[in-house]
Simulated scan of single mutants.
Amino acid sequence: MLTVSNRDSTLKEPITSLINSSFNVSWENNSSYQMTFTAYADNSAGFTLLIPENIITWHDQQFAIKQMIPNYSAGYNTIGITATHIYLDVRKIFKHDKKAGTLTYSVNDVLAFYLDKNTFGYTYEVKGNFSKQQITDLGGNNVFDGLSQIISTWPDAIIYPDNKKILIYSKQSFSKNLGNRLGYGYNTDNMSLTYDSTSLVNQLTVVSATKDNNSVWFQPHIVKDDDSIAKYGVWDGGDFSDERFHDVQAADEAAKEKFIVEPSISVSLDYLDSDEPVPGEIRRLEILDTGFVTNVMVVAYSYYPLDDTQKTSLTLNSNAKTVLDYQRSNRNALNQAKNLNKDLAISVKNTSDKINVITTDGIWYDYRGGGHVI
């Protein structure tokens, strides 16, 4: 059952007036985490507590009410509620200090800078391995902006909270394979794939850091991914420079980690089963009609936990292997089409010695090889 409490938790009541079919929980990786629902006036204490900034608890997670929309119609009094996960309230914490210049940080360094000694009860933990990266002029903004800085600096980082504990996962540590599958015609009847090449980067110019005497460790040069360029052409990501690297080979390897050599595929579908979506779950995706079989990760969902009649929506991520699997299924379909066309051409050739044609005057002509007319 959902409960609602005031900010200091001195009052806590069940929400007995909830309209079950309206209750929706949605999450999107590094973007949003919220619930929405409608409740009707039932003179309960829980209904009176549904006001902005009070806290709703669901599955031991806290959500702060951000919108309350009263509605009066046909003699009924209802309110629409939107509540966001409590971790998103970190935007109220402002870090006035600023670390000027371009400095090297770990993910933990950034979190410590923004959250150490905060008075709002927020804690943090890093799960997985991240290399150190450079950030320019860290600070002078709120903690939510600091989390956004982490996402932009470490694109594989995933923020998933446990109430006021902010957990930063590497993609590898966040993903989990529970042995489940998604199949078109099995547990989804509506699926779409978005194939997107707008983020491709397969070439960079590596620029050396400057020594104290204004000389350089190595000369600027280009690194590239030949396989990606052969398939998609050159997509130049500009310059890459990192003061940590004085060795040209180490700098080149770090630059190559920034490459995005394959287009992305995003899969959206309606899920027909009623189990609760698991963020980060790896599932086997099958479109048997086309031979597309691959593994994908749940990166967003929207579901109605109290109404089995409403379909769950899932969004699944892509990776290089997903794209390769999709390309392989396309090649297989193309080869099948070529074989069908080849068989059709052979069939036409075998029957070309006898073609029946009806003219406008209704007379049939039977053309046989050599121009013989009957």
Rank of each mutant, 00 (worst) to 15 (best):
M35P: 00
T102C: 08
L49C: 08
I287C: 04
K165P: 03
I265E: 01
G140E: 07
Y303L: 01
S199F: 08
H372A: 13
Q67F: 09
K127L: 10
I135P: 00
S318F: 03
F130S: 02
Q62V: 05
N118W: 03
I69Q: 15
A45H: 07
K224G: 01
P70S: 13
T3L: 09
Y87P: 00
I79K: 15
K256S: 07
S318A: 11
I65W: 00
V90K: 00
Y365W: 15
L88S: 08
Y122N: 00
N213G: 06
I65K: 00
N330Q: 15
Y169L: 04
T294Q: 10
D307I: 07
S266H: 10
Y114F: 12
V206N: 01
M297W: 08
L316H: 02
S73V: 14
G101K: 13
D212P: 02
T119Y: 06
L50T: 05
K349C: 10
Q149C: 13
N335H: 05
M35I: 14
Y232V: 05
S264N: 14
R181Y: 15
L167E: 04
L285A: 07
D137I: 11
K338T: 13
F245C: 03
L200H: 04
D225A: 05
W58G: 02
I374M: 11
D156P: 05
K92N: 14
S170K: 05
V323Y: 14
P70D: 13
P155G: 06
